[in-house]
Design a protein around this nucleic acid. Structure first.
Lengths: 207, 207
DNA sequence: TCAATTTCTTGTCCTAGTTCAATGGATTGA
DNA sequence: TCAATCCATTGAACTAGGACAAGAAATTGA
């Protein structure tokens, strides 16, 4: 008994699933067996840089945990204007929830900006997981709550703050991202032109 | 048997719960008994115009369905700038989901703009409902999905469209609201100054 | 390795939207 | 009913940020 539990822990916290197991364990308490079942249902996939996990018009058939790498979710409006909705890095989830659940075409592009290792549920495996271990409902509900909260936050910032503050808030909140993604994508996330972002940075550098 | 079902339907679709029952039935199929149980758990409350359902700093202890009336959810940033996050009218849900679930102080104000009749869950009744009839998980998950989707939509519009288009999109999407709420609240929803909204409207009227 | 491409910077000119102030109309409430 | 407040409009002066253009720097890839 003692040995079993020791090796269980050893396995799960040294396996490739270590991170995702820790991540879901933030929302609820799971046994090793439950985590193992989840791991079994996951599909682990590696994507090279600059590949699309999802393109506009496709139905999103995954909900993915990023174990390694960095992706960008964006949207193209009627005038061809690109809006970056989010950057997702290690320990974040990606996908188009709405498209996934309602099985309808997505409006978004999801593109890797680096080589990525992603752990994926599809509608079937996710349904199985929730059916077998309902506690996972909570994990996904909290995921969505956090997304909603951060979207609201961003809307408020976008509406009420000038470009310079938006940029400072961004680098404070996501300090590692500026080193990893092209600057004009950050501009498109902040809702300002790349030229203006460059000027903002120049002004900040002078101080 | 025939009579029972007839009167059941008669009751539920002529009672004060008619609307909310129809609303939740969009996300899943419920029996009359299940709807009756939900109705039993709801607290029906009337609020006069210009009263707060929630103030910044309070913990949101409700999740409410608006049966009658109109409310505004807003946020005040560091500079005292008000951002209207949403208007909610008949057949919409109000509350601060994050504050509700995590039982932490809200950043928002929720204020009635008209006299309102609201049907409320509190954390206990909601928990009971979900425990007794897990199908309701789906209702609330879809509620949240819709909120998230509409927030994303709004962010995109806010970032990529000029004031006039934002206004036109707003009145197309929510045709009844302009008649019901002061115009400067709409400006604060759109992220533009009330003066400028007035000018936009003047220009549109000229055509 | 070096050409090709992508990204970033800087400058100039321009415009959508802001701020402030003044006026008049509409609601509210005692 | 009439004052008080709140709300919408208009105008004039200003500014944050956009669009365009051209060059420099960095990355990429064969």
């Amino acid at each position: 008994m003692y040995f079993a539990s020791f090796w269980d822990n050893f396995y799960y916290f040294t396996s490739m699933f270590e991170n995702i197991n820790r991540n879901v364990s933030k929302s609820a308490v799971f046994t090793q067996k439950e985590l193992a079942r989840m791991n079994e249902l996951l599909q682990v996939k590696t994507f090279p840089k600059k590949t699309y996990l999802l393109q506009e018009g496709e139905i999103c058939n995954f909900e993915g945990y990023i174990n390694k790498g960095c992706v960008r979710t964006y949207y193209i409006d009627e005038n061809g204007f690109e809006v970056t909705l989010m950057f997702s890095i290690e320990d974040w989830w990606v996908g188009d929830v709405l498209s996934f659940y309602e099985q309808k075409p997505s409006n978004f592009f999801i593109e890797t900006l680096e080589e990525c290792e992603v752990m994926l549920f599809n509608p079937v495996t996710k349904e199985m997981l929730l059916a077998e271990i309902p506690k996972f409902e909570r994990v996904f509900r909290m995921m969505m709550q956090r997304s909603l909260a951060s979207m609201v936050n961003r809307l408020v910032t976008t509406i009420s703050k000038p470009a310079q503050e938006k940029y400072l808030e961004f680098i404070r909140k996501y300090p590692t991202i500026p080193q990893r993604v092209p600057q004009h994508y950050i501009a498109s996330y902040l809702g300002i032109s790349p030229e203006f972002l460059s000027k903002v940075r120049a002004k900040l550098a002078k101080k």
